[in-house]
Design a protein around this nucleic acid. Structure first.
Lengths: 352, 352
DNA sequence: CTGAAAGCGCTTACAG
DNA sequence: CTGAAAGCGCTTACAG
């Protein structure tokens, strides 16, 4: 009782510290702290009666185990990291919220790690990030999720991860495939059903998996409906507004010009709007436009932009849930992610 | 040596664990671990020679103290929280990056806590957030930063905080004032200098400090230049795209109608664009528009939107630096944050 | 300026 | 099913 000042005061510890320690609960329950520990960790090796008594006490006192003490003993923190190199702020924020939704009430917290995958020491940065705080696991967001070298490092470091990518790249328990291809297929079918035959495609850099998936899905679906895109109708942009303008100017200079353009993200679709307006073309009267991402921009453009939406929040929630799941919980059903087209005002049948 | 398996292997511990423990360093240096601890914590009570030897060893081995062990002993984690209830994703992401920039190399990490300030138990949520992991401190982003009840709770919980708000609400060491008013003044002067006299203002909800500051700054600056805004030229929006459309429709129905409109955020400015186009008015030929926030939207609208930019990244960096600063480091110069107008294509002198 | 002891709040072997 | 001992990797008193 001389060792710990708290012992000298009262059995009920200060509320501010979150409800005492494991020792307080053990003393109150008249058991060893090891037994309390078993209850905390859901060990089956506790008598039902004992367990219930301890659980009631824990609730009553408002006791919450200290994550740092647990982490020290476990050699693993109660932190989940999110690693990303993604210019789409809304994407990041939505995914954070989704992950947090799965983590609520678990005692885990989310720590963020934006990085620059073009710098050659970013992997070392992630390594220190996961190792220093002994992260429980990390969520890998596109496009870093596509980097095999990063994943190799994580495996070697013994850090769990959940990858989010356009198509499965890993074992199911570590992977959330977003099936970007399906969204592009939907766009192809939509434009074709409106009657468009001369269609332009503005892609992103081919090194991105999402670009290849979206592009391939779009072209294949068109082909299935008997539409072939001539090479000059396919231009590679850089996922930026400016590149969207430049690519659209090239496409719209064609004669005859496309009656519809699909851009592989919304940024570039906004660029298409600008190019069209500069040329005196009206969207959608003279040109239909579809984007991808359904970013906040889409609904705010005038006319509002039809775009493909991914359930980003859900993806974040699934990823966190995967990381939190017991290693030995058996095979869990892989979540099926399906993008879908949100049709707005930017498309209509071609004129004439 | 039977106790710790690592002792049995080699003096140089596995690189994967980040470079051994304090005991390894102590043994290698031939000192007690307390002395190593003093070096880690920059205590002056270490002989220069001893210190240098230990520091060299730490670098060589790549030793990094375990934040969980330190946190347990300190009763305080190496985590900084960011608490926000802000619909502007770019704002959040930029601020996160700024905070992280200040934290780089310190061993601290950033843990995020979005919340809903309209729910009545959000303060309890933040309380558990800061208490459970014993956060080192939290960054309070507008608009939760304006909530006195939240700050009271944090004070009572003994959690450090840094508040970011339009105007100082707290002691300088806990406050980053963004001086929103100055940005609005700049807009007023700009529009006046272009020759506008009939000017409309679309505000946000008056309960927000930023709204009041921006609105007051704008009107006062106009008044100083001899322009009074009649009441019907001032309408209250809700910071949403839709409210921008509705407010603009009211303003543009006036006869004579305003030649310029200032909206207190970019979302509503986009709404003004839509309303103008629907009425067949051209921006900027028939109507000049200025927004606030300089969100990604601003540069992507057509014509691109003039808007007030806040140095959000720097604000995040300052906030984190404040939290990391030694309590007894003395009074540090309060950073001066100054918003400024980014003039783009949406304004020109009024016609006629 | 330096160190041995005790402690932070939890868990992992190891016994029973 | 339960517990006493030792340990996770660090720090705070307290001595010297």
């Amino acid at each position: 009782m001389t060792r710990r000042s708290r012992d000298a005061s009262s059995a009920k510890p200060a509320a501010i510290s979150g409800g005492g320690t494991i020792n307080d609960i053990a003393r109150l329950a008249g058991v060893s702290k090891k037994t309390v520990s078993r209850v905390i960790n859901r060990s089956p090796l506790v008598q039902q009666e004992t367990r219930e008594k301890i659980e009631a006490l824990i609730r009553e006192v408002g006791y919450v185990p200290d994550p740092m003490a647990r982490g020290l003993a476990f050699r693993k923190s109660f932190l989940i990291g999110m690693v990303y190199d993604n210019p789409n702020a809304q994407y990041i924020v939505n995914m954070q919220e989704g992950a947090l939704a799965s983590m609520r009430g678990t005692g885990f917290e989310l720590v963020v790690h934006p990085c620059d995958s073009k710098s050659d020491d970013y992997i070392e940065g992630v390594r220190q990030f996961v190792l220093q705080h002994r992260l429980h696991g990390v969520i890998l967001v596109p496009r870093v999720s596509e980097d095999g070298a990063l994943v190799d490092m994580l495996r070697q470091a013994g850090c769990r991860y959940a990858r989010i990518a356009a198509v499965s790249l890993d074992e199911p328990a570590r992977m959330i495939a977003t099936n970007d291809r399906l969204g592009a297929v939907e766009v192809a079918n939509y434009l074709e059903s409106l009657g468009h035959r001369r269609i332009g495609l503005i892609t992103g850099p081919q090194r991105y998996l999402s670009t290849r998936e979206r592009g391939a899905g779009f072209m294949q679906a068109l082909a299935r409906r008997g539409i072939e895109l001539p090479p000059e109708h396919i231009v590679e942009g850089g996922y930026t507004f400016e590149s969207g303008v430049a690519c659209a100017e090239r496409l719209l200079a064609l004669d005859p010009r496309p009656t519809a353009i699909f851009t592989l993200n919304d940024e570039m679709a906004a660029g298409v709007y600008k190019a069209a307006f500069k040329m005196g073309l009206s969207v959608p009267d003279d040109l239909s436009v579809v984007g991808f991402d359904d970013s906040p921009l889409a609904a705010r453009l005038w006319p509002s932009l039809s775009s493909v939406r991914l359930p980003i929040r859900d993806m974040g929630a699934f990823a966190a849930a995967m990381l939190l799941a017991d290693e030995d919980a058996g095979t869990r059903a892989a979540p099926v992610i399906a993008p879908h087209l949100v049709a707005r005002e930017s498309c209509q049948p071609p004129r004439g």
